[in-house]
Design a protein around this nucleic acid. Structure first.
Length: 433
RNA sequence: UCCACGGUAGCUCAAUGGCAGAGCGUCCGGCUGUUAACCGGAGGGUUGUAGGUUCGAGUCCUACCCGUGGAGCCA
C-alpha cells in the first residue's frame, strides 16, 4: 500500500464487496437522467462507477451533474463484479468529492489529426493508448538495464555538452559555453570507451541530439540511446551479447506487458519469434540480394530505408547486416583482418520493415591506426588526444553498440511513427509542447 | 535542402465557379443499466495569409506561411 489510503484501479479485483476510495479523472460519462455511468481513469486503468439518484445525497448528485470530461475527483463506493461494466468490475458510488471541474476538454473520444494531437500532446498522453505506450517504454528501458546489470555492467553516464562532433558526420546543435562553442551530444560512445577501460563493462543511457532536417517516420531530433561498451569483447562477443539482450528483453516485455500490447493493437506473433541466434547477412551478400530484387547499389553506398526493409523481409526475426565498407562507417571501427576494406561492424535490423535498431562494432585499439583514421576523416586531432590516450595506456580490444529506445519501442509496439514512442517528441519544426 | 500531397466550425470532414454544411464535442431539455449511449433543441465561420482573374472564388492563377508523407542522414 502506498502513502495514502486509496486503491489503484488495476487492483480493484482484490476488493470485491468492500468500500474503496478511488482518485482520478473522469474519462467519460453516460447518463440516463437519474442514473450516471462514470468512466474513471487513474493512470493504472479505467473503471465504471454507477451512481443512482436514490442512492446518494442531493449534494453528491448535484456535483455529479456538473462533471465534465477530465474533471478530477475522488469517489467512494462498493466494488462489485458486473459483466455489463467494461473491465468486469464496477463501483456502486456512495459519495464523491470533486477537486476541479475541467474546462471544455479539447480531445473528444474520437479520431483526431496528427497536428492537433501533437499540439495537444500534454493532454493526449492521458488517452489509454498513450498510457499503454509509456508503460511499454518504461518496461523496455527497465528490461534493458536489468539485463545489463545482471550481466555485470555498470551504468556510467556521459556528458551532454561536448566540445566537438563525436563522429564528425551529422549536424549538431550548437550552444554557447561561456564564449566557447559547444555541441549537444549525438552519442556517448567515445566517453564510454574511456569508462570501459576504468570499469570493464559499462553502459551509458542518455538523450542524443541530431540537428539533421530529417522528416520521416523514423527520425526524432532528440532521442534516447543506451550504449554498452565492453573491454576485451571481440566482434563476435558483441553480436552474441546483442542477441541475448534482445531475446531476454522482448521475452520479458511479452510476459509483463500483455495488456499494454493488446491496448496498442500489437500482433505479438512476430515478437514471439525473437530468439537467439539471429541470422546474419554480409554487406556483400545484401548487395547481391538487393540487385536481384531491383534495388541495385554501388559497392560502398550505404543502405537506405527501402533496402533495409527488403533485406529484413527475408527473415522472420531480427537480422544482422555485417562487415560494411570502411568508407561508409565511422572512423573508430576495427578493420576486418581478412579484408581490410571492410570494418567489423553490424547493424541489427528489426523485422516488419522497422529498420535499424542497433548499430555496433569492434573499435580500433591500435594507436597508430586510430590516429591515421582521425587524419583521414579530417577530424581535429587535438580534440581527440584524450581518446587516443586510451590506446596509449593499456589498450585492449573492445566493442560496443548503441540501441535507439524510440526505434526499438516503435517496433515492439508496432507503431507507424516514432513520434508516439516518446512523451514529448522533438521533431523538425516542432519543439512544443 | 529537394519531391509529392494538404490547410473550411473546438475536432473529423463535405460543398460542378452560383445561399458555407454534416457528425462529434459544448450549452439547454428528456430518459434508472449505459457501452465512442440515445432522443429533441440551441450556439458555433475573416474557408491559412496577401494579391490577382471573374458579374460572382472555399473552388481558378501567383507568392508566402503552416502541416503531412518521402528522399538525403541516421538510432
Amino acid at each position: 500500500m502506498g502513502a495514502a489510503d486509496y486503491v489503484a484501479i488495476k487492483d480493484l479485483a482484490q476488493y470485491e464487496g468492500e468500500v474503496v476510495e478511488i482518485r482520478g479523472w473522469l474519462y467519460n460519462r453516460r447518463s440516463s437522467g437519474k442514473i450516471h455511468f462514470l468512466l474513471i481513469r487513474d493512470g493504472t486503468g479505467v473503471v465504471q462507477a454507477v451512481a443512482a439518484a436514490n442512492d446518494v445525497s442531493t449534494t453528491a448528485w448535484e456535483q455529479l451533474e456538473q462533471l465534465t470530461q477530465e474533471s478530477s475527483l475522488i469517489i467512494w463506493g462498493t466494488v462489485s463484479r458486473d459483466e455489463r461494466s467494461p473491465g468486469g468490475f464496477e463501483i456502486h458510488l456512495q459519495d464523491v468529492r470533486v477537486l476541479q471541474i475541467a474546462d471544455d476538454y479539447p480531445l473528444a473520444l474520437k479520431e483526431h489529426g496528427v497536428e492537433f494531437l501533437l499540439n495537444t500532446r500534454h493532454l493526449w498522453l492521458r488517452s489509454p493508448r498513450q498510457v499503454a505506450l509509456m508503460r511499454l517504454r518504461d518496461r523496455l528501458m527497465f528490461e534493458l538495464e536489468c539485463f545489463l546489470r545482471q550481466d555485470g555492467f555498470v551504468r556510467v553516464d556521459t556528458p551532454i555538452l561536448t566540445p566537438n562532433a563525436c563522429e564528425g558526420t551529422s549536424t549538431l546543435f550548437e550552444t554557447d559555453y561561456f564564449g566557447e562553442t559547444a555541441y549537444l551530444t549525438q552519442s556517448g560512445q567515445l566517453y564510454s570507451e574511456a569508462t570501459a577501460a576504468a570499469l570493464g563493462k559499462v553502459y551509458c543511457f542518455s538523450p542524443a541530439f541530431r540537428a539533421e532536417k530529417s522528416k520521416t517516420r523514423r527520425h526524432l531530433i532528440e532521442f534516447w540511446m543506451i550504449e554498452p561498451e565492453m573491454a576485451f569483447y571481440t566482434y563476435e562477443d558483441n553480436l552474441k551479447l546483442q542477441e541475448e539482450l534482445m531475446t531476454q528483453v522482448v521475452g520479458n516485455i511479452l510476459e509483463h506487458c500483455a495488456d499494454e500490447l493488446e491496448e496498442v493493437g500489437r500482433d505479438i506473433k512476430p515478437l514471439e519469434r525473437v530468439k537467439a541466434p539471429f541470422p546474419r547477412i554480409s554487406y556483400d551478400e545484401a548487395l547481391e540480394q538487393l540487385a536481384r530484387e531491383g534495388l541495385p547499389l554501388e559497392w560502398g553506398d550505404d543502405l537506405g530505408a527501402p533496402h533495409e526493409t527488403a533485406i529484413a523481409d527475408h527473415f522472420d526475426r531480427p537480422v544482422f547486416v555485417e562487415r560494411f565498407p570502411a568508407q561508409t562507417k565511422a572512423f573508430y571501427m576495427e578493420p576486418d583482418p581478412n579484408r581490410p576494406e571492410l570494418v567489423l561492424a553490424a547493424d541489427l535490423l528489426a523485422p516488419e520493415g522497422y529498420g535499424e535498431i542497433i548499430g555496433g562494432s569492434e573499435r580500433i585499439h591500435d594507436y597508430d591506426l586510430l590516429r591515421e583514421r582521425i587524419r583521414q576523416h579530417e577530424l581535429p586531432e587535438s580534440e581527440f588526444q584524450w581518446y587516443l590516450d586510451l590506446r596509449r595506456f593499456g589498450s585492449v580490444p573492445h566493442s560496443g553498440f548503441g540501441l535507439g529506445i524510440e526505434r526499438a519501442l516503435t517496433w515492439v509496439a508496432g507503431l507507424d511513427h516514432v513520434r508516439e514512442s516518446i512523451p514529448f517528441p522533438r521533431l523538425l519544426n516542432r519543439i512544443r509542447p
